[in-house]
């Protein structure tokens, strides 16, 4: 009787999240950890879309922007509690993804990449220019989630960094769990089938357009929740979160770690979140080093870090 890879992965991830804080020399590491988890969550969504279904989106930051600004605007304008604003943002992102994806995903090829690119830029433009609502490029304050105060009343006194480390860590675990479950579900199988060959998938009775649309909507919701978590922990958000560079960053993280594997993508998010922090003293060369790492991975480990390394290890075992 063996435990499936899925539970090993989740168990390992949970242990890692729970144990590393004991080695943190200062509160700053909780902040980096929670940033890593937020990025990891967004990138897990990319795994579902790109890794499972083989579709590329260059506008996922747009959904992160919607999630983030939902937390900034809904509580102030409509009195929605911040926690519910996360759900609202996710719902809006999901519906928008459905509307954008529905016509586009009927087409073959890279139309989704181009359409999502346009979508992301549009969201960023709206956030930048609708000054009356979003306060423009200078950004806007986000109300406090309120949960930390509640925990304090119950006698659990966490610092801001610790609190967000726990919240984002739990969210990442849930996100990874859903994504791993999806992998072996009928929908996941359908997604992977169409990744292999759309024609073959169609022939065996998979509604290709519908399944692709599902993947797009799910990954949009991941990005939106990640955006919300970022906004809530920063208590401040600027339109940069919806910028094109952020979209590219998400795809880069996924590809670096291994786009077909959830732990791989999370590792990719980890590397690209930690690298700029480690490289602060080389700030001038940061882009250069990132580019070099990316190129080396693409040349020597084209599937990304985790899948390639796992394959090597397994190969050696046999």
């Amino acid at each position: 009787m063996r435990i499936s890879t899925k539970y090993w992965t989740l168990l390992f991830l949970a242990a890692l999240i729970a144990v590393t804080p004991f080695f943190f020399p200062s509160g700053y590491y909780f902040r980096v950890g929670s940033l890593l988890f937020v990025n990891g969550l967004a990138v897990t969504g990319i795994v579902i879309l790109t890794g499972y279904a083989g579709q590329i989106s260059l506008g996922h930051a747009g959904f992160a922007g919607i999630g983030g600004y939902a937390c900034a605007l809904a509580p102030v304008h409509w009195g929605v509690p911040p926690a519910l604003a996360v759900v609202l943002g996710a719902a809006v992102s999901g519906v928008l993804a459905y509307l954008v994806g529905r016509p586009i995903l009927r087409l073959k090829g890279y139309y989704l990449g181009v359409a999502s690119l346009g979508f992301g830029i549009l969201v960023a433009m709206v956030l930048n220019n609708e000054r009356a609502l979003t306060r423009g490029p200078d950004g806007i304050e986000v109300p406090d989630l309120g949960l930390r105060g509640l925990l304090k009343d119950w006698g659990l006194n966490l610092t801001n960094g610790e609190f967000w480390y726990v919240v984002t860590g739990i969210c990442l675990l849930i996100g990874a769990w859903i994504a791993l479950n999806l992998h072996s579900s009928p929908t996941g199988r359908a997604l992977r089938a169409l990744h292999g060959s759309e024609v073959a998938a169609g022939t065996v009775g998979i509604d290709v357009a519908r399944v692709k649309l599902q993947a797009f909507v799910i990954s949009a919701i991941y990005a939106s929740v990640a955006g919300s978590l970022l906004a809530l922990q920063n208590k401040f958000i600027t339109p940069d979160v919806a910028g094109f560079l952020h979209s590219v960053e998400m795809v880069t993280m996924a590809v670096l770690g291994g786009v077909s594997s959830v732990p791989g993508a999370i590792l990719g998010a980890g590397v690209l979140t930690l690298l700029p922090q480690v490289l602060t003293v080389f700030a001038e060369y940061e882009q250069l080093i990132l580019g070099l790492v990316m190129m080396l991975v693409m040349i020597f480990l084209p599937e990304g870090l985790v899948p390639s390394i796992l394959r090597r290890l397994r190969g050696r075992d046999e």
Binding site: R31, D138, I237, T238
Partner: peptide, 30 residues
């Protein structure tokens, strides 16, 4: 702004500075 927040946290929690000067733009300052 997101990076600025991380660096501010790092300055205070890790480098234990006594004062901060910075925030070139309004977004990073906030």
């Amino acid at each position: 702004a997101n990076k600025a927040r991380t660096f501010a946290t790092r300055l205070i929690e890790d480098d234990e500075v006594q004062a901060i000067v910075g925030g070139s733009t309004t977004g990073t300052t906030m």
